[in-house]
Amino acid sequence: AMSMMQTAEGAFDEMTNIAYRMKELATQGASDANGDTEWAAQSAEFVALSAELTSIMENTSFGGTDLLDTADKFGAGNVVFQVGSSAAETLTVNISTDLANVKTAMTSSSTRAATGTSTTNGTFSNVADAQAQLGFVDTLIGEIGTARSSLGASMNRLEHTMTNVTNMKENTQAASSTLMDADFAAETSNMTKQ
């Protein structure tokens, strides 16, 4: 369970890095210091990064199962992990709404219209287009952050559960040892006396 969630969190971490780079590009593009050549270069990288975000969402997997795609594991609803020896000891993780919001924010880039020229698929060729993408990236960063925090809360809960299970195991073994193990010195003394 922890490895699966760490894989998803690693994907979110990289998505955050990509989103910050997209924000940097849009910020650079939102200046009249750029010309057509600069806007084209910034826009090309912005679009490539947007495509990589989609690829991460669709292709992040654990044990052959997609994790972040809206139809699989975390995107499909409740993911239940058995965390103890009884049927009641489970951990349910549900970040599907957060993932859907991330996907919506990513998709909105391709249909975003800015004042002046219409932006398609995250491209920008003037200040107004780049400024419109700034809003998109801010929304995207916020949605990724929300999904990461939901997943992180579940990871923290699992860490505490693991610590508690380890504690119960150690104490049960200690109790068993107290009951079952012989006091070697006392038994040797008794044997010698007999």
Score class of each variant (00 low, 15 high):
residue 157 R to F: 06
residue 59 N to K: 15
residue 131 Q to F: 04
residue 84 G to I: 12
residue 166 T to V: 15
residue 99 L to K: 02
residue 93 V to W: 01
residue 160 H to W: 01
residue 72 D to F: 08
residue 156 N to E: 12
residue 25 L to T: 03
residue 188 T to I: 15
residue 186 A to S: 11
residue 15 M to E: 00
residue 160 H to S: 14
residue 169 K to E: 14
residue 137 V to A: 01
residue 72 D to Y: 14
residue 189 S to Q: 15
residue 180 M to D: 13
residue 168 M to W: 14
residue 174 A to Y: 06
residue 112 R to H: 15
residue 8 A to R: 03
residue 45 E to N: 13
residue 13 D to T: 07
residue 162 M to P: 00
residue 35 G to E: 03
residue 159 E to K: 15
residue 89 E to K: 03
residue 120 T to L: 09
residue 177 S to T: 15
residue 86 S to V: 02
residue 142 G to V: 03
residue 150 S to M: 13
residue 79 V to D: 05
residue 151 L to Q: 07
residue 149 S to W: 07
residue 63 G to Y: 03
residue 180 M to W: 11
residue 106 M to T: 08
residue 79 V to E: 10
residue 68 L to C: 01
residue 49 L to Y: 05
residue 121 N to K: 04
residue 100 A to M: 15
residue 113 A to W: 14
residue 135 G to N: 08
residue 152 G to N: 05
residue 4 M to A: 09
residue 91 L to G: 09
residue 176 S to H: 03
residue 99 L to A: 07
residue 56 I to P: 02
residue 107 T to S: 06
residue 92 T to F: 11
residue 103 K to V: 14
residue 67 L to D: 00
residue 83 V to F: 03
residue 58 E to S: 12
residue 78 N to M: 11
residue 154 S to A: 15
residue 189 S to P: 01
residue 163 T to I: 10
residue 153 A to C: 12
residue 161 T to H: 07
residue 132 A to H: 10
residue 18 I to D: 01
residue 25 L to K: 01
residue 72 D to W: 02
residue 33 A to T: 12
residue 43 S to V: 12
residue 148 R to Q: 14
residue 64 G to Q: 04
residue 111 T to F: 14
residue 186 A to G: 08
residue 87 A to D: 15
residue 20 Y to W: 11
residue 10 G to K: 01
residue 112 R to N: 12
residue 43 S to P: 02
residue 26 A to E: 07
residue 167 N to K: 12
residue 30 A to R: 10
residue 131 Q to R: 13
residue 73 K to S: 00
residue 194 Q to V: 12
residue 146 T to G: 05
residue 15 M to T: 01
residue 3 S to N: 10
residue 108 S to W: 08
residue 192 T to E: 13
residue 163 T to Y: 07
residue 98 D to S: 14
residue 59 N to V: 01
residue 135 G to C: 05
residue 110 S to C: 08
residue 100 A to H: 09
residue 194 Q to I: 11
residue 181 D to M: 10
residue 46 F to Y: 13
residue 83 V to T: 07
residue 95 I to F: 10
residue 144 I to V: 06
residue 193 K to Q: 11
residue 165 V to L: 12
residue 85 S to M: 09
residue 79 V to P: 01
residue 59 N to Y: 06
residue 41 A to M: 12
residue 132 A to F: 03
residue 84 G to K: 04
residue 89 E to G: 04
residue 100 A to D: 10
residue 163 T to W: 00
residue 176 S to D: 07
residue 83 V to S: 08
residue 41 A to Q: 10
residue 76 A to Y: 05
residue 57 M to D: 05
residue 189 S to N: 14
residue 30 A to I: 01
residue 166 T to Y: 14
residue 71 A to S: 09
residue 178 T to P: 11
residue 12 F to K: 01
residue 133 Q to T: 01
residue 27 T to E: 15
residue 9 E to C: 04
residue 178 T to N: 13
residue 4 M to T: 09
residue 37 T to C: 11
residue 120 T to D: 09
residue 174 A to F: 05
residue 76 A to I: 06
residue 86 S to R: 08
residue 81 F to R: 00
residue 5 M to S: 04
residue 8 A to V: 00
residue 99 L to F: 06
residue 154 S to I: 02
residue 69 D to P: 07
residue 138 D to N: 14
residue 175 A to F: 05
residue 15 M to H: 05
residue 53 L to Y: 00
residue 37 T to E: 10
residue 93 V to G: 03
residue 176 S to C: 15
residue 190 N to Y: 11
residue 12 F to D: 00
residue 110 S to P: 04
residue 118 S to Y: 02
residue 149 S to T: 14
residue 52 E to K: 12
residue 18 I to E: 02
